[in-house]
Amino acid sequence: MSAWLERLIVAAAVFASAAYAFKALAPFGWRVSLARRLAGRLPDRMLIWLAGQSACDACGPRPTAGPRRSTR
């Protein structure tokens, strides 16, 4: 495997992890403001994913989600 391919894979893994951790842990307000700032540059689905409500993963089944509000 060439060195640059290895670096690319590692960089992608780190970036994806950072995005996921942000989504899972950052307070709702931060996520919404980040999504607002990126609005227009990212597709809608990505923005909704970033700003979407995250429930506690530890406590089992979640209440069925109601209609989600768009961030814009």
């Binding site: 893994a13 780190v14 994806a16 992890s17 950072a18 996921y20 951790a21 899972a24 842990l25 993963d57």
Partner: peptide, 8 residues
């Protein structure tokens, strides 16, 4: 989440 944090 655990995997993501570990990678970070």
């Amino acid at each position: 989440i655990i995997l993501a944090l570990m990678v970070l």
